[in-house]
């Protein structure tokens, strides 16, 4: 049975694959913790924590968004079962990123944080991304999928495309302050490819639907004229 499958697919099917990827996703956090424990977060630990957690939230978001295109392009159906875990890790790192900003920069002062959000589009974008991904994290369980119904659940989770755009904007806008937008541009291009592929597929599916509809109509017309004859 398994012999017909390619080695990546066989690997993805291994039982240990999921816990292994879980540990890999946890690695940036573990690294931060270890560096903190051993006093190795650098001269500005606050900045190290905020930048590292933000960057990994964004990286994992792109990985999450890459699962479906990769599955379609390679035919590796096994990829699908990792998607939820990647998505939840995005939320985990985004929440750490937010908490570090709220606690370390604003001393947990809601008043200061609110003023910052209202005044700076950069901060507002980050908050927006976090707020938009919260319902997605909360409805990620099988029970919630059942309760919402597959169609409504899917519609809701399309919000992740907006989260991607807002998150990349947040990163880009942040780096603009230092006139150093090279790396956000790379992330923007990757996001554009991932969303672009989806648009293309949606467009093709729509065309195919239209073609088959036209085909049916043509067949109908033919039938009608024949019966008139």
């Amino acid at each position: 049975m398994g012999t017909s499958l390619s080695w990546p697919r066989r690997l993805l099917r291994v039982r240990a694959a999921k816990p292994l990827i879980f540990l890999l996703c946890l690695l940036p956090f573990a690294g931060l913790f270890w560096r903190g424990w051993t006093n190795n977060l650098g001269p500005n630990p606050e900045q190290t924590v905020i930048w590292t957690t933000g960057l990994w939230a964004l990286r994992l978001l792109l990985i999450t968004l890459a699962v479906t295109p990769l599955r379609k392009l390679t035919g590796w159906a096994e990829l699908a079962r990792f998607r939820r875990m990647f998505g939840l890790f995005v939320f985990f790192y985004a929440l750490l990123h937010f908490t570090a900003w709220l606690g370390l920069v604003n001393g947990f002062s809601i008043d200061m944080a609110a003023r910052d959000i209202v005044k700076h589009p950069f901060v507002l974008a980050g908050m927006t991304a976090l707020l938009l991904m919260t319902p997605l994290a909360l409805t990620s369980t099988n029970g919630m999928i059942k309760r919402l119904g597959a169609r409504r659940w899917q519609a809701l989770h399309r919000l992740v495309y907006v989260v991607g755009a807002v998150a990349v904007f947040h990163f880009w806008w942040g780096k603009l302050a230092k006139n150093n937008t090279a790396s956000p541009t790379v992330y923007a291009v990757i996001l554009a490819v991932l969303l672009g592929l989806r648009l293309r597929w949606a467009w093709r599916a729509a065309q195919a639907r239209r073609a088959s509809l036209q085909g049916e109509r043509a067949a109908d017309d033919q039938g009608k004229s024949r019966s008139l004859a």
Binding site: G36, W37, N39, N40, L41, G42, P43, N44, P45, E46, Q47, V49, L104, V105, G107, M112, R115, D116, K119, H120, F122, V123, W173, G174, L176, A177
Partner: peptide
């Protein structure tokens, strides 16, 4: 005018647990 508030600042090199991560601004 930049992206962040200038109301407070992180003093570098304070020391403490986690490299001073939890000392307030």
């Amino acid at each position: 005018p930049q992206n962040w508030s200038q109301a407070n600042e992180r003093l570098i090199g304070q020391g403490g647990a986690f490299g001073g991560l939890f000392s307030p601004r």
